[in-house]
Design a binder for these strands. Structure first.
Lengths: 200, 200, 200, 200
DNA sequence: CATGAATGAGCCTTCATTCAT
DNA sequence: AATGAATGAAGGCTCATTCAT
């Protein structure tokens, strides 16, 4: 959980972390374009020159914010998919809910992602690809698990990943736009809807 | 398909339409931030001053691009939902596929929407709200139709709208990120998956 | 007197006069710099293009405003100085008061003159020179009159003209700045102060 | 005389003073309108951005030039009026001559004042009012002095102030227009003419 | 002749970035 | 290492002026 003195699990005593955390909040509150480097400097209580000691450019700050968040989430997902004694589908659901819970506690990152997608399309595409394609750790982990199992015979496992991924993306987008409700609840509902109650 | 001489059904002989069309393509190709007003002027074969005769600011150009596209889509959806002799669910599917087809032929607008979401969040939220809530024409049209029907007894119709909406948003996002495949196919697949083959 | 349908004695049915009158009022109300040609066009109820049929540039409009006003005033002064049966000093006073009265009824011209002096320094200098120096009609007229007379023996007549001129300029400047009081009264007071009551 | 390394008594080592001094000279040489911010930057040997660190806008530069000059002159007048052992009238004359001498050494400020009066009318009106009205330090100082004295029984002291003020304004205006002669000499001449030689 | 539409040159202002201290 | 001061490159916007109708 993002408390007042950590960001993605890192202590805010670290200059770099301070700057990234401040930047994320400002980008979320207005946008990358409308946030000046001096705003970040003020919010992080450092000088502009200090920022340029740690980051090569304003763009790099955004890049690092996105990279570190994505890395954090990927680690979280992989850990959840590959460990535990539940069925593969249950692990997928658990991973999705973990991510949803994390985003719910880091809404500012989602805002950054949506508002400034244009500035970090390559990063977004990279992780999207990394999750979706079978030569990625995430997808491989899931597919191997499922192939051992017999739970989803009618659907190819790559289709399943896409369905879950798309509906989670949509749910997240809606959640940010609507600015109310619980993302975790939405994701849980969708899993029930897709795989449990409404299915034979 | 968007031919070379119309934009959202309007003739490109109109100066304003020329400018909006050029702007949309440039915003999509790079981004709002990285597009200069003079680029738009060149692309639309008019002078900068002419642009400022038609729009109060650069921001307003983006706003109008988004507004006019949304209006076009809304009209398309409403028409499809409220007319025709199919069942309500079939009409919802048809509307979704119409939108998907339109977006597939206007991919540049989707790029603008995703890349520059931060610049037009209010507009996006407005239409999202307008579609999702029962006092809107879209939602009312669907709900009334469904209540007359008995097709989806287990699910509240507002849930249905949210499911379809979220999965379409997610599909659209993925489609743009992946930069290949057909959005129409995705949407058709999801409708089948949700409501036909895989259900009892 | 500037009534609603004449400007410096010319009928406002004439396009050029319409434009000059409108321009003078606008320049006075804000300033040359802050008045756009389109403002003048609107005020004169003509199009911008029509203005450029009558004047080569915006600068020329200001020039003509100043020139025509100065010409009008010069004619008025000369007529008053050279005709009439009063003593030369009385005629000088009468001329000064005539000018004061005219300016009081054309305050907008004084505003233009003060606000936009920087744009028409050459014209102002030209008339200032024309009035002050003995090879000008004004000065010659006065000097000839005074030399026939013996009224101001202690003062050279060019000094007298400068005193009267300077004090009238100062009075006019103050009158515009103070935005109240009567310029005619001021000028009359100064003539009394300088030449009658307070002198032996 | 304004030496090369001070402006209104302030060292030109100060950035703000450098900028104001450069601006005053440029405004005087051409005009506010025709002076670009980059001209000021070049003349002051700083960058445009530095100018905007010190002043909010180009307009503010002109405002400060006028304000600081007026403040300097007011202080000079007040000091001269209120101190010294001469008679009040002599002190008024001395103050007027001090101002004349200052302006003669700062002709560029007078040029600014006359050329760009339209841009700083409020400031000009403010100081004119401050000098002329009895609740101002300047006027009060003079009036109190005169009332103790019996030197000008025939004239109300506020009339006196207006006469002196107007004739000095006129003399200054003429001096700038004529572009030759000494302002100090003019003012001395007028004081003699008004109060000494020519009076009984 | 009158005009609405179009323009291009140019200005003010901003802001990411650097550097001397 | 940290900073305050300085900057240059660039962009949004304006407005006097022109031209086809």
């Amino acid at each position: 959980m993002t408390s007042n003195d950590t960001w993605l699990g890192k202590a805010l005593t670290d200059r770099k972390t301070q700057i990234l955390c401040a930047a994320q909040n400002l980008f979320a509150a207005s946008s990358f374009r409308n946030t000046e480097v001096s705003d970040i400097a003020n919010a992080a209580s450092v000088s502009k020159a200090t920022i340029y000691k740690h980051f090569a450019s304003k763009d790099e700050i955004l890049l690092k914010v996105v990279e570190e968040n994505f890395q954090f989430i990927r680690d979280m997902v992989i850990l959840r998919l590959l460990t535990g004694s539940e069925t593969p589908l249950e692990r997928l659901k658990a991973a999705a809910i973990d991510v949803a819970r994390h985003l719910e506690q880091n809404k500012s990152f989602v805002h950054v992602l949506i508002k400034d997608a244009g500035e970090c399309m390559p990063e977004i595409q990279k992780i999207h690809h990394a999750i979706m394609h079978s030569n990625s750790t995430v997808a491989e982990g899931l597919f191997k698990s499922l192939s051992k199992d017999g739970s989803i015979p009618e659907t190819r496992s790559s289709d399943l990943l896409k369905i879950v991924s798309d509906i989670c993306i949509g749910a997240t987008y809606s959640w940010v736009l609507g600015d109310k409700g619980s993302l975790v609840d939405s994701v849980e509902f969708y899993f029930k809807f897709l795989f449990q109650e409404y299915r034979c």
